[in-house]
Simulated scan of single mutants.
Amino acid sequence: MVFKRKIYEKMKAWKELSGGESALMIEGARRIGKSTIAETFVQNEYEDYILLDFAKEKREILSNFEENIGDLDTFFRNLFLLKGKSLREKQSVIIFDEVQLFPLARQAIKYLVADGRYDYIETGSLISIKENVKDILIPSEEYKLKMYPMDFEEFLWAKGDEITFPIVKEAFEKRKSLGEDIHRQVMQKFRTYMAVGGMPQAVSAFVNGRTYEEIDFVKRNILDLYEDDLKKYDTNHKERASVVFKTIPEQLSNHNSHFKLAILDKKARYERYVDAIDFVAESMMGNACINVTAPEVALEL
């Protein structure tokens, strides 16, 4: 099921303003709909496209990047032969899906954009993690958009409700009460959103009338994927990222919602956990909100 997403309008703005001089990078956590929105966008906004999914591509595709990126005529000839289709220049786009799995393709963006025959859209998670960028030159030709799970308004859109949110927004801006009955209805919808969450798979299950038990099953599978990513990172980092991630619910249950190192370990020190905390934030598995009480002092202090 394809849902209406706010990032779509930002993608249209990129296409119009970029003029082919940058590739679009959609960054976000896993299973939030990056691949779906990218493919939906190119189907609507371009004449044709080729999708390269680096989680599935054959060795021949990868070798083409390794051996022929310096000769783009040969590169495109081989790509079209391997994918079984060609593209019309200036009217088509090539999608690099899960580009973090093959960093060399991301590095090639510099030359592909300069060539100018096609547009390029990249999608990826964990793209800024050191292990995924340590051996490549990050292209300056990327225009980055961060994508998140579906917010409350997008959730309402999925249910076919385009009335509630504008009314709430107008009431907020005018500082005018909705009235007790309407407020109760809106809060019921919001509590439903909080129970279902914003992962497209879970929202799709809800829209299709699945039970909350089945929706929870979908979300637990996604959490398992996140925990697998954390374990891979923790192989060299003493499981600290997993500990940080798993304590987030407890951290948020504090009356002031402050992140406390003592919950991780009574002897915990910032310098031991800063990389793990950064990983959870950079992977977009968690959202870090820096609480600054003295803005005139540098954040590093």
Rank of each mutant, 00 (worst) to 15 (best):
M1S: 12
K4P: 07
Y8W: 09
K10P: 01
M11F: 14
K12A: 03
W14T: 01
L17E: 12
S18M: 02
L24V: 06
R30N: 08
Y46Q: 03
D53V: 01
K58E: 12
K58R: 15
R59N: 15
E60T: 11
I61F: 12
N64Q: 06
F65N: 02
D71P: 07
D73N: 15
F75W: 03
R77V: 05
I94N: 03
I94P: 00
I95K: 12
F102V: 01
P103F: 08
A105R: 09
L112P: 00
D115Y: 13
G124K: 07
L126R: 12
L126I: 05
L126S: 08
S128R: 13
K130P: 01
E142F: 10
Y148N: 10
P149L: 02
F152S: 07
E153H: 00
L156G: 01
A158K: 11
K159S: 07
K159A: 13
E170W: 01
A171P: 10
D181H: 05
I182M: 02
I182W: 06
G197K: 05
P200D: 03
Q201M: 14
Q201R: 13
A202P: 08
V203L: 09
S204N: 14
A205Q: 11
F206E: 10
E213Y: 03
E214K: 10
E214W: 05
I215M: 09
T235I: 03
S242T: 13
F245W: 14
T247N: 13
S253W: 02
H255P: 09
S257R: 14
K260C: 10
K260I: 01
L264H: 13
R269Q: 14
R269W: 07
E271Y: 13
I277W: 11
A281P: 00
S283G: 08
N287A: 15
V292M: 11
P295N: 04
